[in-house]
Design a protein around this nucleic acid. Structure first.
Lengths: 201, 201
DNA sequence: AATTATAAGATACGGCCGTATCTAATTTAA
DNA sequence: TTAAATTAGATACGGCCGTATCTTATAATT
C-alpha cells in the first residue's frame, strides 16, 4: 500500500510546502494559486500553511527566495562600470524572461495585471494620459531649460517618470517620505540624472 | 416614507459608487474594503460594480483618480530646478501624509503590509539581509572605485538599491526589460547617479 | 518507559469574491 | 404611445480565504 503514516514536521514539512508552492507557481501562475491547492499538493492542510505564512504573497516570496531569487547571479567584472551594469541588467532580463515564461505563463499569463494598490498606483501614474505626474514635471523641466540650468527640456519618458517611481518605491518600502529622504532623492538622483551638479551636500 | 423608487443610471450611478468607494476607503482603509460593502454604501448591488470595474483595485484607482490624485498639485516655480524639485517632493509628502492619515489609518493602518507580488518583491529586495541585489551591486561598485572610475565605493542604500527599483518598476509597468531599456537605464540614470559620464549615447 | 509538550492533521464556520441568471425599471426608437 | 433595447436590481451559486477547534501523532522530558 502507499500509505505513509509518518508525519513530517518542522523544516522538512516547510521545505515540502515551499517546493509544492514553487511547482504550483510554475504550473498555474501566481493569480491562480490557492493556499488550499498548495496544501493539497504538499499533502498537508492549509492550517499548516497558515501557521507559517500570513498569506499567499508571503508564501510565494518564501518559495521565490528559496528556489528562484538572485541565487544564480554572478558578479560581472568586465572592466568598466558601464559594461558591468549592462551585464547585470542582462542577467536580470534573462531571469525575468525565465520567470515570465516558466512561472507566469501557464494559460493565465496576462493576469500579471491584477496586482495591488501600490502596484496599480504605479501603473496609473505612468499610463494615465495627462492626469499623471508628468504634467507637473514637464513644465518644471521647461523652466529649467529656459533658464539654462539644463541643456534641454525633452527627456525620455523614463526620466520624466523617475520622480514618481522613486516616490512610490519610497512609499511602499518605507511608508513615509520624510524631508531627509526628499533631499537625498533630489540631490543624489534627480539632479545628477538631469545633468545638474548639486550645489551643496 | 423614505422610499425612492427612481433608479440611478449611467454616470450618475457611477459617480455615486465612486463617492461611496472613496468614503469607505477613508473610513476603513484599503485592505478592509469589500466590493459588497461599497455597493451597500452606494445603495446598489455588487453586480452593478462588476459591470464597471474588474476588481477592487481598479475601482479604488478610479475613485482615487476622481477624488484624490494629483489634482491639487501646483507647478513649483521657485527659480532653480533644485528647489523646484524639492517643492514638488514636499507636495508629494504632504499628499502622502494626507492619504495615510485619512485613508490608511482607520483602525487598520498597519495592513499597508499585505500587498501583492510585485510590491512584495520590492520589499523583499530591500529588506532582505544579504540575499538581495546589493550583494551584487556593492562589489561592482567596489571594483569601479578601485579602478578610479568612481570617486568612492560607499553610497547611500537608496543608490545601491536603485537598479532593483528601476528593474521592478520596469517589470510592473512594461512587463519586459528589453535591451534598449537596459541601455537607457544604465546610460541615462545609473551612470549619472554614480558620477560617471556616459561614453556614447 | 511513562508523562508532558509540541505540532500536524482534520473539520467546520462565516465572509467575501466573482459569475450567472432572472426581474423590473428606464430610456430610446418606431 | 407603444414596442424594443438597455441597464439596474435581486438573488443564488461554487470557490477560496482565514480562523477556530478538536483529535492524534511525534518529540522532549523525567
Amino acid at each position: 500500500m502507499t500509505e505513509k503514516k509518518t508525519r513530517r514536521r518542522g523544516s522538512a514539512l516547510t521545505n515540502a510546502i515551499l517546493a509544492a508552492a514553487w511547482t504550483q507557481l510554475q504550473e498555474r501562475g501566481y493569480q491562480a494559486l490557492t493556499i488550499e491547492g498548495i496544501a493539497a499538493a504538499a499533502e498537508t492542510t492549509k492550517t499548516v500553511l497558515y501557521r507559517r505564512w500570513p498569506d499567499k504573497a508571503h508564501l510565494v516570496i518564501a518559495a521565490f527566495a528559496k528556489f528562484g531569487g538572485f541565487s544564480g547571479y554572478v558578479v560581472p567584472d568586465t572592466g568598466t562600470l558601464r559594461t558591468d551594469f549592462l551585464a547585470l541588467m542582462a542577467q536580470m532580463a534573462a531571469f525575468l524572461d525565465k520567470l515570465q515564461s516558466e512561472t507566469f505563463r501557464g494559460l493565465l499569463a496576462d493576469r500579471l495585471q491584477s496586482l495591488d494598490l501600490g502596484t496599480l498606483l504605479m501603473q496609473a501614474n505612468q499610463h494615465e494620459p495627462n492626469s499623471g505626474l508628468q504634467t507637473i514635471v514637464q513644465p518644471l523641466l521647461d523652466h529649467a531649460a529656459a533658464r539654462g540650468e539644463i541643456t534641454h527640456a525633452q527627456w525620455p519618458d523614463r526620466l520624466v517618470m523617475l520622480p514618481g517611481i522613486l516616490l512610490i518605491n519610497e512609499v511602499i518600502t518605507q511608508q513615509a517620505l520624510p524631508l531627509a529622504a526628499r533631499h537625498e532623492i533630489v540631490d543624489q538622483i534627480l539632479l545628477p540624472v538631469f545633468g545638474v551638479a548639486p550645489s551643496q551636500e
